[in-house]
């Protein structure tokens, strides 16, 4: 028998996201102001792919950035906003109101059920929340039915099948054994619903380090691991808070009109050639002030 030799999952950022092409359905991890794989999102926006369906279960400015860069035709999810800083994602709102982007509304729990159905290879999973609401009217893929066991009205939540999942984890080894910090949001569900997973990490560690906490490991065959330290900025990871001022500035730029939004994109997304260059636009003092 030939000797073994394990393949590396490590990838450069642009190689890793090459699997996202025009028309791809891409799920993006994180929740509200935490744990979004922003370095991957910025690289995607920079590349200028078109016509994406973006599945963002509880989204933030990763959705706004991709819409602003012209990459998106459809958004699937339960929320896009920045809490008190912007009750609604500003670019998301204007793109939907102008009809440039279509929205497919789901409840947060529908996102869980739909992603789980995809991972389980099922056409749908049932759910009760949403019965008696506008959900089936707004999103006709949600089908009301009477359950065959107890005869109660339920909704069929169709499988959310993803071409690609982009998620963040704090660490991974070079074989794709990734370990999220904390709860990992819906990221593991996104990974299991996707044909291809790309994982942004702060650090690449040895497999020995991974073995110390094997219960934390998430893994999918063939996943790509991209090192991008502090790459969730302006959102939090496990040891860095969200950058409230940066988010305030982004919202001001987005609400200021095409010119100020284009300027934000130019400075923070389009011109920095990689994650390090992006971090230079933020500045070491700002980054340092966010560490907890």
């Amino acid at each position: 028998m030939p000797l073994g030799g394990r393949s590396s999952s490590l990838s450069e950022i642009d190689d890793a996201i090459a699997c996202v092409v025009d028309g791809t359905t891409v799920g993006i991890g994180g929740a509200v102001t935490a744990g979004h794989p922003m370095a991957l999102v910025r690289a995607l926006a920079r590349r200028g792919v078109r016509d994406l369906t973006v599945v963002a279960p509880t989204g933030g400015i990763e959705v706004d950035l991709l819409i602003a860069a012209g990459c998106v035709s459809r958004i699937v999810g339960s929320y896009v906003g920045i809490e008190a800083i912007a009750g609604v994602g500003p670019v998301y709102r204007s793109a939907i109101e102008s009809g440039r982007v279509e929205v497919v509304d789901l409840d947060e729990a529908h996102c869980v059920a739909g992603l789980r159905a995809a991972g389980q290879g099922l056409p749908f999973l049932p759910w009760r929340g949403g019965v008696g609401t506008a959900f089936p009217q707004l999103n006709p893929t949600l089908i009301e039915f009477d359950d065959p066991v107890r005869g109660e009205p339920l909704l069929a939540i169709p499988a959310i099948e993803l071409d690609v999942a982009l998620i963040y984890a704090e660490v991974s080894d070079c074989y794709g054994n990734a370990q999220p910090v904390g709860t990992g949001h819906m990221d593991a569900l996104l990974g299991s619903a996707a044909k291809q997973v790309v994982i942004q990490v702060d650090r690449v560690v040895s497999t020995e380090e991974i073995r110390r906490n094997p219960e934390k490991t998430i893994y999918w065959p063939g996943s790509k691991v991209v090192k991008a330290p502090f790459g969730t900025h302006p959102y939090s990871n496990g040891w860095m808070t969200s950058d409230e001022q940066h988010l305030v500035d982004f919202v001001a730029a987005a609400k200021g009109g095409d010119e100020t939004l284009s300027e934000y994109l130019r400075v923070h997304v389009l011109e920095p050639e990689d994650n390090d260059a992006y971090l230079e636009t933020v500045g070491i003092r700002r980054i340092s002030s966010l560490l907890i």
Binding site: S78, G81, V88, Y92, V103, D107, E108, R128, G129, F135
Partner: peptide, 26 residues
Amino acid sequence: FGIPDGEGGWKMRGPGSIALATMSAY
């Protein structure tokens, strides 16, 4: 959700319903 324009689009779009439907049901 927001206010629909009556023609399949949106007069005013909100952030989405997060988990309101589910949590209020249970």
